[in-house]
Amino acid sequence: MRVAFVGKGGAGKSSIAGVFARMLARQGARVLALDSDPMPGLAYSLGVPSQDAGIPADAVEEYEDDDGRRRYRLRSGLDPSAAIERYSTVSPDGVRFLQLGKARGVKGENSLSHQAYQLIVDSLSSDDWSVVGDLPGGTRQAFFGWGRFAQTVLVVAEPTPASVLTARRLARLALHSSAPRVLAVANKTRGEADVRYVERGTGLPVAGSVPYDETQRDADRRGVALLDLDADTPLVAAVASLVSSLSAEEALR
């Protein structure tokens, strides 16, 4: 399974993605969790202490193609699985966590790290990895192809006008060729009316509804993973059910 979580800032992408990745791993999948957000987030919800272990610039080397254009490839001797082994960290439940690296200063030169990240992600095989990606809030990365590894894009939306407006913009990801399937995940819901609001407002099929979860707020304040604070909460139950339904669907395809 390969999914990417997108949505408005603060919608709950990272919180859900971290639980999703770990629940998927508990089902026996080999899971790679990807964080391309230049601000920290997913590490907290996975429960990985490492907040800033990006891919170093020397993971790639430049070369000229036959037409004399500058291109990049992983440096010699570094194949994609070796790169994952080397640059990812292991989170609880055995999830591999690979991050782009965080923003450094006003003009941090990180284009080589970006190249390395894309090269690794583009080379992943579904046979080897289940992939759970967490993109930054908004439309920029999503519309520029940073979620292109995903077969299913999950748009996380709260039942608020700004959140569903963002989700409706992101639904355009389904419009271009080689488009992934795009589904909504209603988050911080308090009842059926909220789920219907997200369904109507986003125009997307709702794959799951995650209730507002006070324990998640507590986990956020403490800077710990929800799963490590309390695994018996509404959010965890809802995400576990989302993992099960998407897995069951995939098994049928």
Binding site: H114, Q118, G138, T139, R140, A142, F143, F144, G145, W146, R148, R169, R172, L173, L175, H176, S177, S178
Partner: peptide, 10 residues
Amino acid sequence: AIQNPEPGCP
């Protein structure tokens, strides 16, 4: 505003 997907433009 970035309003539409621009595939091939990472």
